[in-house]
Amino acid sequence: MPPRFLTLADVAKTLNLTMSAARALVTSGELPAIQVGGKKVWRVEASALEKYIEDQYALARERTRAHSAD
């Protein structure tokens, strides 16, 4: 069974982003996350990351449709 929560490093690797870009997605609220532990490190629920990816595909489809309608 895959882990429920992912680290920012996991998110960065999955999305092929830098750590600072992954952190920016979280701190902006674009990608929901929680802070846990003594150092309050960020954790992203795997399902939230999957939803974020699905939403990005939907946005890309909308942009493509809007661009082709021009």
Rank of each mutant, 00 (worst) to 15 (best):
M1G: 10
M1N: 05
P2W: 04
P3V: 09
R4T: 15
F5M: 09
L6S: 04
L6W: 03
L6M: 09
T7K: 05
T7Y: 03
L8N: 02
L8D: 01
A9L: 10
A9H: 09
D10T: 02
D10L: 02
D10W: 01
T14F: 00
T18R: 06
T18F: 03
T18K: 13
M19H: 13
M19D: 11
A22G: 11
L25T: 07
V26T: 13
T27V: 15
S28P: 01
S28A: 10
G29D: 12
E30M: 05
L31M: 02
P32N: 04
P32K: 10
Q35P: 00
G37F: 05
G38P: 07
K39C: 01
K40S: 10
K40H: 09
V41L: 13
V41P: 00
R43W: 07
E45N: 08
A46M: 04
S47Y: 02
A48K: 13
L49H: 03
L49P: 04
K51N: 11
K51M: 10
Y52F: 15
E54A: 10
E54L: 07
Q56D: 05
L59W: 09
E62S: 14
E62V: 14
E62Q: 15
R63L: 15
R63D: 12
T64R: 13
T64I: 09
T64D: 11
R65W: 13
R65P: 01
A66T: 12
A66N: 14
A66P: 01
H67R: 15
H67F: 13
S68M: 12
S68T: 13
A69S: 14
D70G: 13
